[in-house]
Simulated assay, not measured.
Amino acid sequence: MLSMKDIIRDGHPTLRQIAAKVSMPPSEEDRQILKEMLEYVRNSQNPELASKYGLRPGIGLAAPQINVLKRMIAVHVTDNNELYSYALFNPKIVSHSVQHAYLAAGEGCLSVDEPIPGFVPRYAKVTVKGTDLDGKEVKLRLKGLPAIVFQHEIDHLNGIMFYDHINNQNPFQPIENAVAIER
């Protein structure tokens, strides 16, 4: 079972590298790693389990964050009472909206211990394709919070941190034609 000690921190060189594509069908080892990533985000949201195992709550996790340079992400997030719980190999954004969105409270990251204030511009809607744990091709049309979470995790696969998107001169500069998402 993954714990906070398995999650590498900001400044670790792996977080800035581009992850390798996972060959299909995935190896049993890759399937096990991805299962454990999903289990971590699920368990981290359960206060009892989070306390018992010392898990920091998270809604997404990318393999590079556990020092595995492979294109794998796990997301477990609820939005408007709908659960988005996915573990994907080789996820990619295949289309996106022109309109942008951002989390009004800013973004956080399990690999970043201190809060980094500022708006992170993202696409308001994205379509993501990937392969699930059963080897099935998945196509997700996402908007709002789930769209932001998937973009954040896919960024990790490309060595991009959320704060790379923040305007350094004016972190809270309004983002033109963007939707603010409250969480």
Rank of each mutant, 00 (worst) to 15 (best):
Y86T: 04
D6F: 01
N177I: 01
V22P: 07
N46K: 11
S97Q: 03
A50F: 05
Y40R: 12
F89W: 14
S23H: 11
N80M: 11
N67T: 02
E153C: 12
L83R: 04
G106D: 04
K70N: 11
K21D: 15
Q173T: 01
L140D: 11
V22F: 10
G106T: 13
G159H: 15
V41D: 14
R31E: 11
R56C: 04
A50Y: 09
N167P: 00
A147Q: 07
L15G: 06
V68D: 00
I73T: 09
G118D: 01
N81W: 02
A101N: 05
V68M: 01
Q169W: 05
I93R: 00
I166Q: 00
M72D: 08
N43S: 09
G58F: 03
H152P: 07
E107Q: 13
L38D: 06
N170V: 02
E48H: 06
I33Y: 02
Y40W: 04
Q32R: 15
F162P: 04
H76S: 12
R183E: 13
L145A: 11
G135P: 02
N67W: 00
F172M: 07
N177S: 09
P57Q: 11
A147R: 03
K129T: 08
R141T: 13
A104C: 00
I181R: 00
A105N: 12
D132A: 10
I59M: 13
Y86A: 05
A104F: 01
E153S: 13
Q32G: 06
H165A: 05
S95H: 01
M72F: 14
K129D: 01
P146Q: 15
F172C: 00
P47T: 08
M72C: 06
A74M: 13
Y84Q: 07
G58Q: 08
D155R: 06
H96I: 02
P121Y: 03
E114I: 06
M1P: 06
P57A: 09
N67K: 07
A87P: 08
Q173D: 01
A19K: 07
Q65P: 15
L140S: 12
Y86E: 12
K136D: 09
E153F: 07
N177C: 01
Q32V: 05
K136N: 14
M37E: 12
Y86V: 02
V41I: 14
K139T: 15
R122L: 05
